[in-house]
Design a binder for these strands. Structure first.
Lengths: 232, 232
DNA sequence: ATAGACGCTTGATAAATATCAAGTGACTGG
DNA sequence: CCAGTCACTTGATATTTATCAAGCGTCTAT
């Protein structure tokens, strides 16, 4: 189905260390598809028939309960999602929808599990990816339980700035209501939180954020690599 | 260091499917140690030199920030903790302390990584374990973001009851302040939450809980396997 | 151009949760 | 057996967060 030399996928960390043969096996039943914005890809509770790899665009992983909905995380290229459900042959715990036009590779879960048993390089990569995802969610939990909404926002802004080489001016890469959902607050509350952070040199106009006094903001936000660093 | 036939460890899911040779290699540098209650085992931020396997007792995985502290999860035998940090050769994201007298196997992280590369059965088990941990934290996140403290408590009680074959009477297996921390609330708030659940047939006296009307409690709590089931 | 949609903001209020301060009761060590 | 400790509870209050209802501004489609 998918040209086995397809470079964007082959060079993914997850697939880079495997044999050509294993890669071919994995891709034999795979689809590469482009989706328009705001399309539902996955509904939580369904069986995990495919591992998804986001090649282009962005995807919102969200979850609903009792008429409430929250965004658990935003996936950016190039990375996989729903890897754990695929491995465990279990149901999806989150729903997924495209946020913009997105290109996605879908690999049948049974092939992922089969190749995992055959190819040690792939197995190793899967473990590293999973461990990384796990640590990332633990950080999210700590963020939610240890900090107020205002502190979460402040640290989010600092983390964005740091990811952009300490830029003092940058654009929010999410709609504000999306950001509010990711941070675990209402859009109204986010709006007020931005105002409250003016006291620490934060100004927002539309998408554009300016951090005029990062030192002061850090004094308030108290960032730590054990919560805010996306790498380690 | 550790008798390689040590049965409590060898029969763990994580080690059951590996060759005797690999197991011996893994255990060569391992320690089996018994700790008294309330002993610090790990401090977050340190390097993950050992994979820990809890054989007996119970361990609190907690985290601190800015003078606040929260319990991320309680580990019961037999299971591992800090697997992800070991795999990634990274720093611990959580601290750990014994809650009661506990027996723990400590395996050097480098041996875990080495054997992972050599033994496919072990690799497979590591992935399954990690995927399971990942899904468990995702559920925690959903629980925190989608529910109020009262709803979390109600679902916790239902989940405990379900785990005991639907028992209507059971004992809390945690101190209340521990439970409060796990559920993301203060002890005072927990105390009031128990009172509020009286309206749904919940009575508590000391450690003992009675759920006199599980149907009514479920109508309030709205449990779902996608958050409350520990297995899937 | 302009009407409408839509995302965001603002204000007023309510609900949820935390904090602080006392009090209660049970267990424990001398 | 008693005093002290400690976990838990209760009450009063403050803070945080959500909800509801308008209003504002921008973008877009006709």
């Amino acid at each position: 189905m998918l040209d086995s030399t397809f470079p964007e996928v082959r060079s993914l960390d997850l697939f880079a260390d495997m044999s050509d043969e294993s890669y071919a096996k994995l891709m034999r039943g795979a689809y590469l598809q482009t989706f328009p914005p705001h399309v539902d890809l996955i509904t939580e509770g369904e069986e995990a028939d495919f591992l998804h790899v986001l090649v282009l665009g962005s995807v919102d992983l969200f979850s609903s309960w009792n008429n409430r909905e929250t965004s658990v995380s935003i996936v950016k290229p190039v990375s996989t999602f729903i890897l754990a459900a695929t491995i465990r042959d279990a149901r999806y715990l989150m729903s997924a929808r495209t946020m913009e036009k997105s290109r996605i590779v879908m690999i049948p879960s049974q092939d992922v599990r089969a190749v995992f048993d055959l190819d040690a390089g792939f197995a190793r990569a899967v473990v590293v990816e999973l461990a990384s995802c796990y640590r990332s969610v633990i950080k999210t939990t700590k963020n939610l339980k240890l900090r107020t909404a205002l502190e979460r926002l402040a640290n989010y802004l600092l983390s964005r700035s740091k990811g952009l080489n300490g830029a003092q001016n940058f654009s929010l890469d999410l709609e504000k209501r999306q950001l509010a959902s990711v941070l675990g607050m209402t859009p109204e509350n986010l709006s007020r939180a931005f105002k409250a952070l003016q006291a620490y040199g934060v100004t927002v106009s539309g998408e554009n954020v300016e951090l005029s006094d990062i030192t002061e903001l850090e004094k308030f936000a108290k960032p730590t690599t054990l919560i805010d660093d996306n790498q380690t």
